[in-house]
Design a protein around this nucleic acid. Structure first.
Length: 831
RNA sequence: GCGGAUGUGGCGGAACUGGCAGACGCGCUAGACUUAGGAUCUAGUGGAUAACAUCCUUGAGGGUUCGAGUCCCUCCGUCCGCACCA
């Protein structure tokens, strides 16, 4: 490859990265005379190297940050490391490297890659969650939760990932498998710490409507995850027992249609009710079988419903009827009360179950204008209707009956209106080493005692053996475990579980506002200066987990009076995946493109430009080596254009002589490009079309310099065009533009310049192209002076030689004119 | 099953409130410059056709309109999320 006319990206990119760093170009104060703007990309887990998804994420964020800076904002654009987590521990186990060392090395490598991408981060604000000066405050957050009654410990059947050797929160299990390793998750009874996210369920749901700057689908996913349903608890009495069986139902209007009761296999009443009966063993075997089934099988909708009668009855409080009690696999212990009333006529699952086991089906909601007979039904009737077979409530519309029956139940003490959520409390304990310690001490005398704030941080011991099991590696370190009780001073034991790393990432965006504060996690003033984040950018895979936890944290911090913000992220951009050959890049598919290769072959500017040009940020991006080549060619084209016209930069504009046509056209292109790019980047982050417009501008400048005789070329106009070109291109390709800016005699970095403004006067078109249609089909195009009147244009259109033949033998019915654009001549057959 | 997104040349993708479909880039074809070209430049490039005339063309089929990629209805495909939530 002949290199003599290609630009030397290696030298140029290194040069400018050094200058930016030396001159602190991207350092930002918390307050100054400019308005603040906070743009944030999700910080990475330091896995070892950046992949294309990272590069895309940071390229998008960097363009936003640079444009906002040029537009006069004081822009906070920080970066950091979500540095606690399992891979570090696994590396330690497999390769004998300490997690801290492994993590530190990875961070050094990835930070270097980010710098080579040319990102405009304020590195003075870098945070690393595994450093004690950060996790001290993560522990502090735990204590805050504890103080506010939002952290508690309980024994519960929890999700256990045998591969990762730790428990998982509900959000971290998808379709029965672990979010990290993809292996089956099983249920285990363990005593664990939880955060009371359910206490915020309503606010997390309601405030979704404040998030108009979020993609709708993310809001819907969160709404679904929270899963609010409004209904009633109803207690069926159990003869011979003090307590009855309470069920949750969204359909109290169907209570007269109950023909059986179903308990979840895990329901504590099951064992109690069958004790000593002849079916005891049979039922216990069934329960055991259900428990052994994996979560995937258990929750799949097409799993065959199975159940057994207990031979025991409860009483429907409304009509006093005896209702047989069953146990069945389709009832879940961890939703509602773990017991369900069976109304086969009006619930599809109950219907299937009743048909299978020949349980009675009684219609209590009648559809309008027809009679529903249970023996004819092929599926449950879940639509609205009128109550029948329902005693005093007969004849009521079912929506009305819901309220009436709920009220009646409450009045009689048989139940009350209830709201149930799908959202569970957040299980935050992890039986692993590489995480923030839970700052709790267990004292034989005083019980559970939080570590006093002044004793934070609880430091992770360095000498540990990694021997994963049900107990955290920390439990094997006596120096760590054995301590004294902060209350009574007697020997006590530390909690040895660490915190879910999602806790670290639930508040890091606050820490960036005040990263070196050693008195508090951040000052309220610093947080108020920046929060909420104006633009957050990251992958949609965090739609529920990270984004929901961060919202929860922000609300708790708000309630504690520590921050003003009630939501952390005003606008959210979920970038698309980087794919190749139609599928996501992954090592197993062997379709990975390493950013290092692209940096080495074409440089960061080319990589950035390609990634931003090939697709809009929220869509998937198909990687194309040819496309990268095209971006590389374009930058060289810009390079040659500028280098070929170095002499124009001394030119002084001649404001006296009117411009000729070619110059007016070029100026119009320059200013319409400024307008187009400004709109594209501002409104929808349409970087791909913005870059396309810049490419058109380059083509047009070439067209001018190639077609106007050198002596006649207007140097001031070329200068104006090239300067604006460089300014518009600078957020996308920061190195080459800074270099050319300097070479063309400008003082200071181009990245400190203002965003260009378009000149309205230059935009005014001199001529317009009017499309002429006959009956909606294009027949001619007329180029007319911009000030032509409607009549003049219509006359031209009707007499056009290309239009005339189309009007032969027809009458003009009407003429529709869209001013400045189009004329449509509508005809009818001659009578 | 429910919810969401999406479907446009050989490819990635444009087309704001209904108004020239295919911007820009890739690829391809021809030419120029060259010892050479995988550099660069110029021209062309949705399909049919001998045609600068004509017709067809935005997943399929209907509809509204002077005019539909865009609005409405009925389907189909692909991707994603949730999935026995009582």
């Amino acid at each position: 490859m002949a290199h003599e006319d290609q630009y030397d990206f290696k030298t140029i990119e290194r040069k400018w990265q050094e200058i930016w760093e030396r001159e602190n170009v991207y350092s930002v104060p918390n307050r100054c005379d400019k308005p603040n703007y906070y743009v944030l990309e999700m910080f990475p887990y330091p896995s070892g190297a950046l992949h294309m998804g990272h590069i895309r994420n940071y390229a998008i964020g960097d363009v936003v940050a640079r444009i906002k800076t040029m537009k006069g904002f004081n822009v906070l654009h920080p970066m950091g490391w979500d540095a606690f987590g399992l891979p570090a521990e696994n590396a330690a186990i497999q390769r004998g490297i300490h997690p801290a060392v492994w993590t530190k090395n990875n961070i050094a490598k990835m930070r270097d890659q980010q710098k080579r991408l040319g990102t405009s981060y304020d590195w003075e604000r870098e945070v690393t969650t595994c450093n004690p000066d950060y996790y001290k405050w993560t522990e502090w957050m735990f204590l805050l939760m504890y103080k506010r009654g939002l952290a508690y410990k309980k024994t519960a059947p929890v999700n256990w990932c045998p591969t990762c050797q730790t428990v998982l929160a509900n959000e971290q299990v998808s379709e029965g498998v672990c979010w990290r390793c993809g292996k089956d998750v099983i249920k285990k009874d363990l005593e664990q710490w939880f955060f009371r996210t359910t206490a915020y369920a309503d606010r997390l749901l309601d405030d979704l409507k404040l998030l108009q700057g979020w993609p709708e689908r993310v809001r819907i996913m969160q709404e679904h995850w929270i899963g609010k349903s409004v209904g009633a608890d109803v207690t069926f009495t159990l003869p011979g027992h003090k307590e009855g069986i309470t069920v949750f139902t969204t359909r109290p209007d169907t209570l007269y249609g109950v023909s059986f009761m179903v308990l979840a296999p895990e329901h504590p009443l099951v064992a109690e009710l069958i004790k000593g009966s002849e079916r005891e063993q049979e039922v216990l075997d069934f329960v055991e079988k259900c428990r052994r089934e994996s979560a995937i099988v258990r929750t799949a909708a097409d799993t065959e419903k199975e159940g057994l009668p207990l031979g025991v009855y409860c009483i429907n409080p409304l009509n006093g009827e005896q209702v047989p009690i069953w146990v069945a696999n389709y009832v879940l212990m961890d939703y509602g009360t773990g017991a369900v009333m069976g109304v086969p006529a009006h619930d599809q699952r109950d219907f299937e179950f009743a048909r299978k086991y020949n349980l009675p089906i009684r219609v209590v909601i009648s559809p309008p204008e027809m009679e529903l007979r249970s023996e004819d039904m092929t599926e449950a009737y879940a639509e609205p209707g009128v109550l029948v077979n329902s005693g005093p409530f007969n004849g009521l519309a079912n929506e009305e009956a819901q309220a009436k029956i709920s009220a009646y139940l409450q009045e009689k003490g048989w139940g009350q209106p209830t709201v149930t959520y799908r959202l569970r409390d957040w299980l935050v304990s992890r039986q692993r080493y590489w995480g923030a310690p839970i700052p709790i001490i267990y004292c034989p005398e005083c019980g559970t005692v939080p570590v006093p704030e002044e004793d934070l941080p609880v430091l992770l011991p360095e000498n540990v053996t990694f021997d994963p099991g049900v107990i955290s590696p920390l439990a094997h370190v006596p120096e760590f475990v054995n301590t004294t009780c902060p209350k009574c001073g007697r020997p006590a034991r530390r909690e040895t579980d660490t915190m879910d790393t999602f806790i670290c990432s639930s508040w890091y965006f606050f820490r960036y506002t005040d990263p070196r504060n050693d008195q508090e996690p951040f000052s309220k003033d610093a947080a108020s200066a920046w929060m909420p984040v104006d633009q957050y950018i990251g992958g949609v895979e965090h739609a529920v987990m990270h984004l929901l936890y961060s919202r929860f944290f922000t609300k708790v911090l708000h309630d504690a009076g520590l921050v003003e913000a009630v939501e952390p992220f005003t606008n959210l951009l979920t970038q698309g995946m980087v794919i190749k050959d139609g599928t996501k890049m992954s090592k197993s598919k062997g379709n990975v493109v390493d950013p290092e290769e692209i940096f080495a072959k074409y440089g960061a500017d080319t990589a950035r430009l390609f990634i931003l040009f090939a697709a809009p940020p929220d869509k998937d991006l198909e990687w194309s080596d040819r496309g990268v080549e095209g971006s590389w060619r374009f930058l060289n084209r810009v390079w040659r254009l500028v280098r070929g016209h170095m002499d124009v930069f001394a030119a002084v504009a001649d404001t006296k002589t009117p411009l000729a046509r070619a110059e007016r056209d070029l100026r119009r292109k320059v200013h319409s490009t400024i307008l187009k790019v400004s709109e594209d980047v501002e409104e929808r982050f349409n970087f791909n079309t913005a870059i396309a417009a810049i490419m058109e501008l380059v083509n047009e400048i070439y067209h001018y310099v190639d077609n106007v005789a050198p002596k006649k070329q207007n140097q001031a106009i070329i200068k104006e065009a090239i300067e604006n070109l460089l300014l518009l291109l600078s957020p996308f390709a920061p190195h080459i533009t800074d270099e050319l800016w300097q070479q063309t005699g400008h003082q200071g970095s181009i990245h400190l310049e203002n965003w260009p403004k378009w000149d309205e006067a230059a935009l005014v078109a001199e001529e317009l192209t009017i499309v002429v249609q006959v009956d909606g089909r294009v027949r001619d195009r007329l180029v007319v002076p911009a000030d032509s009147s409607k009549e003049q244009v219509e006359e031209l259109a009707l007499t056009s030689p290309r239009v005339q033949p189309q009007l032969d033998g027809k009458q003009v019915a009407k003429v529709i004119t869209v001013p400045g654009k189009l004329i449509n001549i509508v005809t009818r057959e001659q009578v």
